[in-house]
Design a protein around this nucleic acid. Structure first.
Lengths: 132, 132
DNA sequence: TTAATAATGCAACAATGTTGCAATAATAAA
DNA sequence: TTTATTATTGCAACATTGTTGCATTATTAA
């Protein structure tokens, strides 16, 4: 992954944190929480800067925010391969979050006059690892 | 609504806050946040007690928690009429949350060895009121 | 009515995220 | 390459949402 090109593609300048965050999310197979990201960063990275970078990446549609529960929010690189909206699976045992790209979201029957912008589905359960 | 019977049905004793919370949620047509509930309660109700009551109602399956976003969680009385799981609609303009009981949740294609416990869908959009 | 038990209020704390502002780093121009 | 401009970062302080321990008060059952 060429993080310099990736960043400039979104009109962002190359800084240490941005490069590192891209790398961390690129390597990770599952969605990561800000705390999980923080633990993978060097110790001297400010919490505020990380939050600001995450917010920036969200705005630029580089990452996707997945709200698991009131207290757990995770982030995933938006992958152009499986770009369309899909549900996410949350393992209640190990807390990992994975994409379910093969499951289409339901087409919702909205009341008259309502309009839809987006929808998100979280599937709670246990993964193969935790079932064994 | 007979709150005394309703509470004893779930093995709960009748206290002022529990009665009032049931009443507030019963009257409300949409899901309410803890802050919205707080503003409908008397001023002298402790925030901690409300949180504890909400948690208790959740555990007893009297109410259903709907996580809209990292910072917004709403609660709704579980209505036995439309008891099965259904998506919820969140109006991004007025912030109201409504049930979409006529839309079934998708049946997810899970990888081998995975098992499902629950799923939740949040539909983001604008309601009829806000579209006019 | 009273004793046992359960619920509440208060203070303090914890986690997660935000804001203002000064210091620093990145970029573009000379 | 050096400098000036602009963008980014770090720090301190704050905001919101929720939790814990413990003493006080209310509820329930005898």
């Amino acid at each position: 992954m060429d993080s310099v090109n990736y960043l400039s593609q979104f009109g962002l300048s190359r800084t240490a944190i941005r490069t590192k965050l891209l790398e961390i999310l690129y390597i990770a197979e599952e969605a990561l929480s800000s705390k999980e990201i923080e633990s993978k960063l060097d110790d001297d990275v400010d919490r505020v800067t990380l939050y600001r970078t995450i917010k920036l990446f969200e705005e630029k549609k580089i990452i996707h925010k997945i709200v698991i529960d009131d207290q757990v929010t995770k982030y995933k690189l938006i992958n152009s391969q499986k770009g369309k909206e899909h549900p996410h699976f949350h393992c209640t045992e190990c807390d990992k979050v994975l994409c379910l790209p093969d499951t289409p979201l339901p087409s919702c029957k909205l009341p008259d006059g309502f309009s839809i912008q987006a929808q998100s589905t979280i599937v709670e359960g246990t993964c193969q690892n935790c079932n064994n």
